[in-house]
Design a protein around this nucleic acid. Structure first.
Length: 309
DNA sequence: GTCACATCGCACCACTGGAA
DNA sequence: TTCCAGTGGTGCGATGTGAC
């Protein structure tokens, strides 16, 4: 019978108690903490965003090895409680939540909360339907915070490549029976631009084939990242990979979306949404929403009927 | 020569695990 | 602590293969 022996070094599991990084790592983590504090409002940041801010603000090496090193230390620092878990987003988890309740009172409380937080779909009466699609799934929470006020849904382009997702998008647009605008945020590189163009062509073809009438159309707007934004923000670029077949027709450098500071991305997106909004209609909807909320409040179960809340 | 289909290597991202 | 190779799922363009 073989004897199981402990390996020379065990991988970190759970929290790292008494985490004491060496001086060089400590300096790296301090820089990361500065970036996290600077953009506290935009948490959670992705590792890529922290990386690019460190490249820009602290002269950190812009290499894949340096990025890997940073990810490694950020993971340890979170296990070591030096950096809060909620500061960084690195998950790709898909969740199926259950619409189940502990008991009747829990259900009634839920209904009351829903009513109190009632929000109208502020896009429903607009002449144009909008959606935001982003290549980096980790940035969705930041983009959602901007788009939520306008009832603009945010999607990850992880599924943008999928034929099913493209058909579903076309179906949604046809069902809306009005103009649609897809605001896209992605890297400035041959693959990113090529995928954007092919998706735009594919969805447009589906919409044109299936639309109920000629007023239904779709426009794809590349909100970020553009060559102008790379230039205007003096972003760090890298040459296009020679191994990528699409690089042959590409001129100039490439740049990751995360190289743009979170506040700049938020401003760019908000400006793109605002440009399409009919403000008179928007204000009318806000007024109607308030009236709806009062009316719904009167229909909700009284707090005393739900036991202790 | 043309077409359809298959295959290949690549991109994306945040790790993970093993070795040094 | 650092480095390297690998993982997951999908679509891209380029190239190869076979049928007509």
């Amino acid at each position: 019978m073989s004897k199981i022996t402990a390996s020379r070094k065990k991988r970190n599991r759970g929290y790292i108690e008494g985490y004491k990084p060496n001086a060089k790592t400590r300096q790296l983590l301090e820089q990361a903490q500065v970036v996290l504090q600077e953009y506290r409002k935009y948490w959670p940041l992705t590792c890529r965003q922290i990386f690019y801010r460190m490249v820009g603000a602290h002269g950190y090496d812009k290499t894949e090895a340096a990025y890997g090193r940073l990810c490694h230390h950020l993971a340890n620092a979170r296990r070591g409680k030096l950096i809060p878990f909620e500061a960084i987003r690195d998950d790709g988890v898909t969740t199926y939540s259950l619409g189940h309740f502990d008991d009747r009172d829990a259900f009634l409380r839920h209904v009351r909360q829903l009513g109190e937080g009632y929000t109208r779909n502020r896009l429903a009466a607009q002449h144009v339907h909008m959606e935001v699609w982003c290549e980096a799934a980790g940035m969705l929470p930041q983009l959602h915070r901007v788009a939520e006020w306008y009832s603009v849904p945010v999607y990850s382009s992880g599924g943008f490549d999928s034929l099913t997702a493209k058909k579903r998008l076309a179906d949604r647009i046809c069902a809306m029976e009005k103009e649609a605008v897809i605001l896209h945020l992605g890297d400035y590189d041959p693959s990113g631009v090529s995928i954007f163009d092919s998706v735009a062509a594919d969805v447009t073809a589906f919409v044109e084939a299936d639309r109920p009438h000629g007023l239904v159309s779709v426009e794809f707007e590349r909100v970020a990242l553009t060559s102008e934004q790379v230039h205007d923000n003096d972003l760090p670029t890298a040459p296009a990979k020679a191994t990528d077949s699409r690089s042959k027709t590409w001129t100039g450098g490439t740049c990751q979306l995360e190289a743009l500071p979170p506040n700049v991305i938020a401003d760019i997106l908000e400006e793109a949404i605002k440009r399409r909004i009919n403000w008179m209609q928007f204000v009318e909807d806000l007024d109607a929403e308030e009236q709806d909320r009062v009316m719904i409040g009167g229909l909700l179960p009284a707090p005393e009927s739900m036991g202790a809340v």
